[in-house]
Nucleic acid binder design. Structure first.
Lengths: 218, 218
DNA sequence: ACCTGAACACCGTTCAAGT
DNA sequence: ACCTGAACACCGTTCAAGT
């Protein structure tokens, strides 16, 4: 029993960490506790996250902020993409990633934006225990790239131009994060809205914002 | 030198804690380090915050979220208001506090709201190191009461009614917090906007939101 | 009332070692 | 490559004691 090929991986570690965070809060996550949950010595985690807890936090943040192809563990900048090291992974520093173009989305720009916003909100809400990790971390992943592209296309289509697109995208993003923070902050108060009402309020504000963002129509 | 009347107070402790947070981040705040900064044994802090670090965090959150009569240390629910204990402080559980009505604000509703939003944003930005404390804490202070009243008056004046006022207030609040989080998240990235541009973006989104919130005008 | 100082359980991380 | 186990410096908090 001295050997232990626990089959640890970054993904398993992140998922288990998220589980602990969900149950005991962010402050309840310790390397030792995480090791226990993974049935491994705490120090084993350092083999997968050599830079320690801070690096683990970054990975969790990236995971939470990347609602992409379902449960993918994104690679952080400054880390090699795992798997057999050998040739360079070919990091094209281009903005536009040519992948992930599964099918054209022909729906109107406001529907696409609204859809994205609701999905993003749901993701943040699902991992609300890790939300405060996102306050000082802005992970950069394929998923966040895709979001950026989606928003810019939609807002350009709405008739905004250049600077306005940039600012409008920031505004929508800010509103989504802010709304989730607002809900989480107040969720165990007395007159707190239930899940349905919370989503209704989110939709109300989102519609107002998008209405106000649209170019003058009269 | 065994005695030490350090003249400790909740306010001094909170201010010093905020100073440490500004310098070393939230994770850099330890009771022992805080004690050192206050030239006191760490355990002395527990006399002013008997419930420990969690209570201190609550107090910091309340302080940051209360841009009220300049630097007042608000009292948290579940703590006596300090000073000589004796008679009960007379906690009127009424919502509307009859105090703090210094002078009528006769400016249009949108100016009042915009003003409040910019001031709130500035406060959160000033203490951005403590921002993540607000993700899971919604302190209730005279200042937050005043904010609520201000918002409701303004939005009612704008022509919104009942439910709409509630939802609109949430939306504005969400946007403000979200915008600050968004700025803090991205602030040491490459193409990050400077302070002026950041405020401009904030204003842009805020105007859009308020425009979209206003009742139909055509 | 206000602060000290020793003590305890727990924490993140390093480092040498095992397979 | 992957994991263990002892060690170190630091942490939050309790508790008895000083003035």
């Amino acid at each position: 029993m001295s050997r232990n090929y626990a089959g640890l991986s970054r993904e398993r570690i992140i998922l288990e960490a998220l589980h602990i965070i969900a149950g005991r809060g962010l402050g309840g996550l310790s390397m030792r506790r995480l090791g226990d949950a993974l049935e491994v010595e705490a120090m084993a985690i350092y083999h997968h996250f050599p830079l320690g807890k801070e690096q683990l936090f970054n990975a969790i943040a990236a995971y939470v902020a990347s609602p992409a192809p379902s449960g993918t563990v994104p690679t952080e900048p400054g880390e090699e993409p795992g798997e057999e090291p050998g040739e360079e992974a070919g990091e094209d520093s281009d903005g536009q990633a040519p992948e992930a173009e599964e099918a054209e989305d022909n729906r109107p720009w406001d529907v696409r934006l609204t859809d994205w916003a609701h999905a993003y909100r749901a993701r943040l809400l699902e991992f609300s225990g890790a939300l405060s990790l996102l306050v000082h971390r802005a992970p950069h992943t394929p998923s966040t790239d895709a979001t950026r592209a989606l928003m810019h296309r939609a807002l350009a289509e709405a008739g905004l131009s250049g600077d306005e697109v940039e600012r409008a995208a920031d505004a929508v993003h800010s509103y989504c994060v802010g709304a989730v923070v607002h809900q989480v902050r107040h969720q165990d108060e007395e007159g707190a809205p239930d899940a349905a009402e919370a989503e209704a309020r989110f939709g109300f504000g989102l519609r107002a914002l998008m209405r106000g963002l649209s170019p003058r129509s009269g």
